[in-house]
Design a protein around this nucleic acid. Structure first.
Length: 881
DNA sequence: CACTCCCGCCAATTA
DNA sequence: TAATTGGCGGGAGTG
């Protein structure tokens, strides 16, 4: 039949047919006519664009076989078209000339030419990215299929994915409506939100998965089945199923596509490997994990990926893991959706103006985490629902099962996420660990196209690759609460560091930095110390100060804490937040009452303290990224904090001073953020990372017990460490700390720094340490000075920087800079040599985090010196849970 | 051999 | 019941 048409057509319309046009247009973005569909109809076939076509026809005529082939798949034409676009016409011509047969064969589209991605491009080329609102472009599947010369089945593949992104909607049978990308950002935003909810945990830990994999490595793979086995998975699905029997739809490519996109949006690295995605999706499905299932999922993912690639949202990359190179896709689409982000952040420089709607969303976010979640869910779904409603049953009522489905999906997703998480945890060994790990997970950011990540087994974390331009994390990823506190300032563009709100880390493009840190809390303090000890560099004292015991305690705390709060719905929200927070913090939030006593100070005080801390952080950051300051300024830290507190409190019991506080701390802190300060004038050679968040309280406990130090900051001379950047951990505040906070006394910091300097490591730094009131080395510290959060910050920083800078002999000879962060006492750390191990170590964290204890022990062992520093950081990250 | 992923059977849905 | 959708996995093309 086709042949017929073609033959006829060809002659007729040698014109440029759509197909051809399409191919070319696509690049451009065909806005040409919205109406597209019509045309296709008009011209049944695309025709022969080029002489080739005619030739082909001739050829086909000549050889029946050929003809058959052609017929078989109309591909013929379309293919040719594609080919033309792809390949020089000359080839075709030549071929023709030579021999019909050969030519034919050659012409015969290669597999690539028939690829879904190419097909999709052609498809997309037909429609304008941003159609006029007025025009309503309808798409006739049959028509398109014929035009493109493919079977309908293929068109479904494309349309389903596009539909998942709301680029099209189904209007009626065989008819879709083209919307273009007008709503794409919104859709992505929704997906991001939904993804955060669903996968946030996971994703935050996305790496986790990877990490887990890494860590557990093979084992895990083996385990995969295990994971599948898990009931969790199962139940998750049930929901889905129960919700609706749309099993079929649930599995739909459409949903998979959305989930897949969510993974990207939630992923810090923006890179998702196929196998991980497949696992996650499978989990959701709860399917038993057979290999076959996995394979099937992967196939589907390729299908989806091809379409997304055509949309320019992702690109293929490879991630090198221990196991080897794995196919992965990197998100290259918009990461931030201005709308919301802006609000959340305050205003991000990068933000684009966006629709009001988004804003609204933002507002909600602010409202409360819980609400936010809901909101997101709804919003996303609603939109989806609406779409669906529209789509499938136009005739029938709006609320179609579809909606339900989606809702279900959402729930599923959530479940899945939970499940996954659990699994992860289990895999990890302990939930705690897993959680912990999550926070850290940074994936290496791929630079460009080929970015390869070398995952170290240990280093889960990633090493951030310098090249990575910038990646910013989605704001809300893990815990919303956190964000607010740190509005992230992301400057990706310049290579400046990006702050990610929730993220514990900031990535800097510059190669020199690495960072790491987890949340910090007392743990941090303690651990770091220990680690430091490991390093050996650092002052023994400091190390000594840090008692391993503390760590343990922490761990215990963690455990307890997690259990407590999470449960209710709110809790759910909270949970997430908490967990996230915790996780990142990783290590533990100590809960000891005893410790806390100081911390115990009334929650309020704690809060204040926290605030201060944050402020401080901000300050630090500010220099580097002014915007941050702005943001903060915009939003008072206090405010944020308060929110957090409130949230925290709710779940917990407010009164319990110690624990409560600790929790709060944990929560807040968990998102340790680091600010990267670019070397400013003064600091020429150093790069600093500051941890942005710290839990104010976190330290507190430690402090009490541990007199010692926390190392708030570490500075590393960039030169020396070429590869290293500095990391500073901000101060932690514990309740106690709060006092100290106030003071940014330089003296204290200074002292530390000095000590620290001793360490071999070139790096150095510390600043504020947490001072224990008692022990604090630097008595001088002012307990209270500080305090004003936002305000202070910037000034402080500047001050500190300038003031502090020293050339310290200590460091490798490099001048050392001290940062004073805040607080009184500080313990200096030493990052030791950092280098080698460090990456790994850091990365590992997650895994290692998994076992805090282990870590501690390890630390004791100090097997890895380098890592120690990292570890610390990591440690700090611990979460109470 | 591993990675991709095309192809189309055939079941689930819809008309 | 027929047509439309779309899950699914065999197995082919590529590197």
């Amino acid at each position: 039949e086709n042949l017929y048409d073609r033959s006829r057509m060809a002659p007729k319309t040698p014109i440029k047919n759509e197909p051809i046009d399409l191919s070319k247009q696509k690049g451009c973005t065909p806005e040409r006519n919205p109406i597209t569909p019509v045309k296709s109809i008009d011209r049944p076939q695309p025709d022969p664009w080029t002489p080739t076509t005619n030739l082909k026809i001739l050829v086909s005529a000549a050889s029946p076989d050929m003809r058959d082939r052609e017929k078989k798949k109309e591909l013929f034409r379309p293919i040719e078209n594609s080919e033309q676009s792809d390949t020089p016409d000359s080839l075709q011509y030549d071929i023709v000339d030579d021999s019909t047969v050969d030519e034919f064969e050659k012409q015969r589209p290669s597999r690539k030419q028939k690829s879904l991605g190419l097909l999709c491009q052609k498809f997309l080329a037909r429609y304008p990215n941003y159609p006029l609102s007025t025009e309503k472009t309808t798409i006739s599947l049959d028509e398109v299929a014929s035009i493109l010369g493919v079977e309908r089945r293929r068109i479904y593949d494309i349309v389903n994915v596009l539909e998942s992104l709301h680029l099209v909607s189904r209007v009626a049978k065989n008819q879709y409506c083209w919307h273009g990308r007008h709503n794409l950002s919104q859709t992505l935003k929704m997906l991001q939100e939904a993804g955060e909810l669903q996968y946030g945990e996971l994703m935050t830990s996305q790496h986790k998965d990877q990490d887990l994999e890494y860590k557990f490595g093979e084992r895990k793979k083996e385990t995969i089945p295990d994971s599948q086995d898990r009931p969790l998975l199962d139940f998750s699905e049930p929901d889905c199923n129960s919700a609706s029997a749309n099993s079929r739809k649930d599995k739909s490519l459409r949903i998979m596509s959305q989930k897949f996109v969510m993974l990207f949006l939630v992923s810090k690295t923006k890179i998702v490997t196929l196998d991980i995605a497949a696992k996650i999706l499978i989990e959701e499905t709860q399917d038993t994990v057979d290999h076959s299932k996995f394979k099937t999922k992967v196939r589907r993912l390729y299908d989806i990926a091809n379409v997304l690639t055509s949309l320019g949202l992702i690109k293929k990359v490879h991630v090198t893991e221990e196991r080897g190179r794995k196919p992965a896709f990197k998100w290259i689409g918009p990461v931030e959706f201005p709308e919301k982000n802006d609000e959340l952040r305050g205003h991000s420089p990068t933000s684009d103006p966006l629709p009001e709607t988004q804003r609204g969303t933002c507002a909600q976010y602010q409202t409360s985490a819980t609400e936010k979640q809901r909101f997101t869910r709804h919003s996303s779904f609603n939109s989806a629902q609406s779409c669906e409603a529209t789509r499938r049953k136009v005739s029938s009522e709006p609320n179609s099962p579809h909606q339900e489905r989606q809702d279900e999906n959402c729930s599923k997703m959530i479940n899945l996420a939970a499940v996954c998480r659990q699994k992860m945890e289990e895999d990890t060994g302990s939930a705690k660990n897993s959680n912990i790990s999550l926070p850290f997970s940074l994936l290496p950011v791929p630079g460009d196209s080929d970015f390869c990540v070398n995952p170290l087994p240990q280093a889960v974390f990633p090493v951030v690759q310098a090249d990575v331009p910038s990646f910013s994390l989605p704001n809300g990823i893990s815990s919303q609460a956190s964000h607010p506190s740190t509005p992230a300032a992301s400057k990706t563009e310049n290579g400046k560091p990006t702050l990610v709100p929730n993220q514990p880390f900031l990535c800097f493009p510059s190669s020199s930095l690495f960072m790491l840190c987890g949340g910090l809390q007392e743990n941090n303090l303690s651990e770091p110390l220990s680690t430091a000890g490991d390093l050996g560099n650092r002052s023994a004292e400091a190390q000594a100060a840090v008692p391993p015991t503390v760590c343990q305690k922490r761990s215990s705390h963690k455990c307890s804490s997690p259990s407590a709060p999470v449960d209710d719905e709110e809790p759910a929200a909270k949970k997430q937040t908490l967990e996230h927070g915790d996780l990142p913090l990783s290590l533990v939030v100590p809960k000891k009452p005893s410790e806390s006593p100081k911390a115990e100070s009334p929650p309020g005080s704690g809060c204040s303290a926290a605030v201060h801390l944050e402020t401080n952080r901000l300050d630090l950051a500010s220099p580097a990224a002014p915007e941050v300051a702005h943001k903060e300024s915009t939003k008072p830290l206090d405010y944020q904090e308060e929110e957090k507190q409130s949230q925290n409190k709710d779940p917990d019991e407010p009164p319990s001073g110690n624990e409560h506080i600790s929790k709060e701390n944990a929560n807040q802190p968990f998102q340790p953020q680091y600010l990267y300060v670019q070397p400013t004038a003064g600091l020429s050679s150093f790069n600093f990372l500051f941890s942005a968040n710290q839990a104010p309280g976190a330290i507190s406990l430690a402090a009490n017990q541990l007199p010692s130090l926390s190392v708030p900051c570490v500075m590393v001379p960039s030169a020396a460490l070429a590869s290293f950047p500095l990391v500073c951990s901000p101060s932690f505040t514990s309740p106690l700390s709060s006092v100290p906070d106030g003071s940014f006394s330089a003296a204290a910091s200074t002292n530390f720094s000095m000590s620290s300097l001793a360490s071999t490591t070139p790096v150095f730094i510390s600043t504020t340490a947490v001072v224990t009131p008692k022990v604090s080395p630097a008595p001088s510290v002012d307990p209270q000075q500080p305090a004003h959060p936002s305000l202070h910050l910037s000034p402080v920083l500047t001050r500190s920087c300038s003031a502090v800078k020293l050339d310290s002999p200590v460091c490798m000879g490099h001048p050392v800079t001290l940062l004073k962060l805040q607080q009184p006492s500080s313990a200096p750390l030493t990052p030791k040599s950092i280098r080698p191990a460090h990456h790994e170590a850091f990365f590992k964290t997650p895994g290692s985090l998994g076992d805090p204890v282990a870590w501690k022990k390890n630390e004791g062992n100090q097997t890895r010196n380098a890592s120690s520093v990292q570890r610390r950081l990591e440690i700090s990250g611990t979460s109470p849970d």
